[in-house]
Design a protein around this nucleic acid. Structure first.
Length: 193
DNA sequence: CTAAAGATGTCCT
DNA sequence: GGACATCTTTAGA
């Protein structure tokens, strides 16, 4: 198990989205370690991808999508839920992978406390759920995941997971036909389960 | 300045 | 299957 370096994110966004399946999301809060296996992701591109925040060019919020690969992009939707993304593509190109589902592996007690009253099987099976469980909010926006000791990603030496499937992205109005959502088949921590 | 929509989740019927 | 919470960002007047 080792931290994922910047090179990993310096390539096509959908490739990163696929490669992240089976990798791990790590979080340290108050000396406690949280770990989750990534089981669902989505790719968002730049100018030519209508549902992407980068589709209308660099704005105050979206400009981070053109910055260094490996940075965290966290934003609020519906005034309630934080979405956690990783910036991809070489610097100057826009792209980000949304993490939509993880499987709790370590620090489950802490995740439960962060999501009071929620059953264990629904702790992290959705993009807004996992940010709450992992304590990710706007303070983590722009964090460098290749250097941070509070939030980072790790990969195993074993090969890619075999049971990957793809589909259209969820919760968007345009561009639904593009197959840019990736998930591990039959995993209970994929959203919508 | 104003307004509308949003990469969702939960609870209710 | 549907209502509704809640607030930031962005586009347009």
């Amino acid at each position: 198990m080792k931290r994922i370096k910047r090179d990993f994110f310096t390539r096509d966004t959908a490739e990163v989205a696929k490669a992240l399946l089976g990798s791990y999301l790590l979080r340290e809060i108050d000396g406690e370690l949280l770990r989750g296996k990534i089981v669902e992701t989505e790719a968002y591109y730049g100018r030519k991808d209508p549902p992407s925040h980068a589709s209308s060019g660099r704005t105050k919020r979206s400009k981070i999508m053109w910055r260094k690969p490996g940075l965290a992009y966290v934003y609020l939707v519906y005034g309630i839920h934080y979405m956690f993304n990783v910036v991809c593509e070489p610097e100057g190109e826009a792209g980000a992978v949304l993490i939509r589902g993880v499987e709790p592996r370590e620090g489950i007690g802490r995740m439960s406390r962060n999501r009071e009253g929620i059953r264990q099987e629904h702790l992290t099976d959705g993009p807004g759920k996992l940010t709450e469980a992992f304590g990710i909010s706007r303070e983590e926006n722009r964090l460098d995941l290749t250097e941070s000791d509070e939030l980072w990603l790790e990969e195993t030496k074993t090969g890619k997971p075999r049971k990957m499937q793809s589909s259209g992205r969820i919760g968007i109005s345009e561009g639904k036909e593009k197959q840019l959502r990736f998930f591990l088949a039959d995993n209970p921590c994929v959203s919508g389960g």
